[in-house]
Design a protein around this nucleic acid. Structure first.
Lengths: 337, 337
DNA sequence: CGCCTTTTTGCAAGCGTGTGCAAAAGTTTC
DNA sequence: GAAACTTTTGCACACGCTTGCAAAAAGGCG
C-alpha cells in the first residue's frame, strides 16, 4: 500500500521466478519459456505492474523520448504538425516531449539543453535556429536532430524543406494567367530561411517576365500583420492586383483588410495566394488558393529517418513538393481584357 | 569520444573530487563548499556535463514529467491551452510529455498507462474521460491528475470547470435584450459534460422566460458541423433569430452557412454567440461575440495545484468564470420593434 | 592547545531495469 | 543411458544518480 510503484522484484516474488525472468518477459525477443511468461504476466496484471521506462532508458542506449521544440505552437500550421508528429511517434513506439521556446531567455539553446537532460533519442525542431555549438553537443551525445523548414548549413541534422522557389514560380505564372500585372509579396520580418526563399523565388520568377514586385515586410507571421500590410499596400498609388502572402495567416488578414477596409472584391479586384493550407483557408469566407504543406510526408519522413539505423552516410536532406490548392482567390480568366 | 554521454563520474575525476560532490553541486540546497562547487562547475562546463534526469527521477520520488493527454490538439482552443500549459510547466521547472489520443484503440486509458511507464508526476487531461480503474491506478501510483473541463464524479483528480450554466444564462439575456425570440442551440453530439452543461443551462434559462429552444446536435465540435447545422436550422419554417453555439468553431461555420448559403445578415437577421474566444473569432470577417476561456487562470491553477504539497484534503475542484466578449454578432437594440 | 560544534566530504547502499555468462534443465541422437 | 546439443534460468554487474551516515576538516571558545 505504502510503496507507490510496483517493481519487477515484486512481480518476481509473486510469480516465484527470478527478476530476470520478469525483465525478459517484457523484453521482446528475449528467451523465456511460455510457462514462466504466463506466470509472470498473471502476477504483473494482478499487481498492476508497468516497466519503468526511466530505468529502462538508463540501461539501454535509447530512452524512447523524442523532443519537439516549438514556439507559437498554437499557430494552425504548427499545431497540425505537432499533432501529426505525436501521432506518428506514438505508433512508432516513441513518446514526445514538448518544449516551448516562446520565452526569450536562452530559448532554443536552453531547450536543446533540456533534451539532453532527459537523454532524448532525438529532437525535432519546428522553430528557431539552434546555435551550432549546442547542435554539435547534441550530436556528440548521440542524439539525432531533425530540422523542419529551416534550412541552414549546419552539418549533421536531417533537414526537411519544401521547394519554396518552385512554389513561388507557380504562383507567379498563376497570377499572370489570371491577367495580373502588379505583383506584390507580403512577408513578415522574421526572416526564416524558408520564408526568405519564397520571397526570393517570387521576385526572381517575376523578373523573368520583366515584372517588378512590391515587397512589404511587417511584424510577425500572423493575421494582424496581414491586415497591417493591407493598409500600406492598398493605399499605394499603384495598388497591386495580386499578392503572394508568405503564409496563410497573413493572407487571411490581408484579405480581411482588402475586403472590409477597402471594399475590394476577391478575386475580381485582387488575387491572393497563401502558403500552408491551414484549415481556416478552406472556410467559406476565405476560400483561399494556397500551397499545401505536405504534413503527412514531412512527418513520415522525419520519423522514418529517426528509425533508420544508418547514423552515418545516408540521406541528410529531403525536399518535398508543395502543391497548389485551387480555391477561389485567383480568377481563372483575365478581367476586363 | 566513443562514450556518448558524460557522467558525473567523469566530472568528479576531472575535478579531483568524489562523485557525491558533483551530485551535490547540482542539487539545490545541498551542502558543498564554494571552492569545490567552483571546481566541479568548471569541469562540468569543460566536459559538457548534464544531470541525467532519468537517473535522478529513479532516485527521487519526482521525475519532473507532467503528461498532457489531448486529442485533436490542433483545434485552436486546445492548441492555445497546450501552449500555455507547456510554458507554465517549464517555468515551474517541469517538462511536458504530450500524449495524443486521436486513435481509437485504448485511447485515454492507454495514454494514462503510458504516463505510468514514464513515472510522470502528474497527468493533465484535456480530452476524453478516463476509466475509473485506470484513474485509481494512477492515483495509487502517487500520480496527480487534473481534469480540465470534463467534470465527472471521479474521486481524487483536481477538476477545473467553467460556470457553463451561468454563461448560458448570460447568453439568453443578451439575446432577449437584442429582441430575439426564436432561440436555437447548436451542439455537437460528442456529449462532453461541459458541452451538455451549456445546453442544459441555455434551455433552462430560456424556459424561465417562457421560451422554447430549438436544439440541433450534429457530428463533431468543428467548423463543418456548424455549417451543417446552419443548413437544417435555416430551412426550418420558423427560422431562429438567435443561435448559441456550443463552441466558436461551430459558430464560425454556422455564420458562414448563414451568410453565404442563406444570405442572412449578422446581427440584423441573426444573432450568434459562441464559446472559447479563439483567435479566429476576432477576425474581421467574423467579429464573433463569445465567451472567453480563462486560459491563463486555468493554467495557473492547474500548475499551482501540482506544486502544492497537501496531497490529501485541500481543494479538489475549481470553477472559473467565462466572461462574455462583446463583438458584433449581437445587435445592441431590438430591430423592427 | 583541547574540547565542542558546525560544515564538508567520501563511502556505500540503494533506485528499477537490461544483459553477458555460466549453470541447470530439457531435447535430440546414437 | 550417455553424449551432444539447445533452451531456459538465475546470478551479478552495470547504468547514472541521490542520500544517510560517519569520518574528516574547519571553525569557535575558553
Amino acid at each position: 500500500m505504502n510503496k507507490s510503484f510496483v517493481s519487477a522484484d515484486d512481480v518476481a516474488k509473486r510469480a516465484g521466478v527470478s527478476r530476470s525472468a520478469v525483465s525478459r518477459t517484457f523484453t521482446p525477443g528475449a528467451s523465456v519459456s511460455e510457462e514462466t511468461r504466463q506466470r509472470v504476466m498473471e502476477a504483473a496484471d494482478a499487481l498492476g505492474y508497468h516497466v519503468n521506462q526511466l530505468a529502462r532508458g538508463l540501461m539501454r542506449s535509447e530512452s524512447g523520448i523524442v523532443c519537439l521544440v516549438v514556439s507559437e505552437m498554437d499557430t494552425p500550421y504548427r499545431a497540425r504538425l505537432v499533432r501529426a508528429l505525436t501521432h506518428e511517434l506514438q505508433t512508432a513506439g516513441k513518446i514526445a516531449m514538448l518544449i516551448n521556446t516562446d520565452r526569450s531567455d536562452g530559448s532554443v539553446d536552453g531547450a536543446l539543453r533540456q533534451t539532453l537532460h532527459y537523454r532524448a533519442d532525438a529532437s525535432i525542431l519546428l522553430s528557431g535556429l539552434p546555435d551550432k555549438a549546442i547542435t554539435r553537443l547534441c550530436l556528440n551525445s548521440g542524439q539525432r536532430i531533425v530540422l523542419i523548414n529551416r534550412d541552414d548549413d549546419i552539418e549533421g541534422p536531417f533537414r526537411i524543406n519544401l521547394d519554396d522557389g518552385q512554389a513561388a514560380r507557380v504562383a507567379v505564372s498563376a497570377f499572370l494567367r489570371a491577367g495580373c500585372r502588379r505583383l506584390a509579396f507580403a512577408n513578415s520580418d522574421v526572416g526564416t530561411p524558408s520564408l526568405m526563399a519564397r520571397e526570393r523565388g517570387f521576385i526572381a520568377a517575376a523578373a523573368e517576365f520583366g515584372l517588378e514586385v512590391m515587397v512589404v515586410r511587417h511584424g510577425n507571421t500572423v493575421y494582424e500583420s496581414g491586415r497591417k500590410i493591407a493598409q500600406t499596400l492598398f493605399t499605394e498609388p499603384k495598388r497591386p492586383d495580386a499578392v503572394f502572402c508568405v503564409n496563410d495567416l497573413m493572407a487571411l488578414g490581408l484579405m480581411d483588410g482588402a475586403k472590409h477596409d477597402f471594399g475590394l472584391h476577391i478575386p475580381e479586384d485582387l488575387c491572393v495566394v497563401g502558403f500552408d493550407d491551414i484549415e481556416q483557408s478552406a472556410w467559406t469566407s476565405y476560400s483561399l488558393t494556397t500551397f499545401s504543406q505536405p504534413v503527412d510526408e514531412i512527418v513520415k519522413s522525419s520519423v522514418a529517418w529517426l528509425q533508420s539505423e544508418a547514423t552515418t552516410g545516408g540521406v541528410r536532406s529531403v525536399s518535398l513538393h508543395a502543391p497548389l490548392i485551387w480555391r477561389k482567390t485567383i480568377r481563372h480568366k483575365s478581367v476586363g481584357a
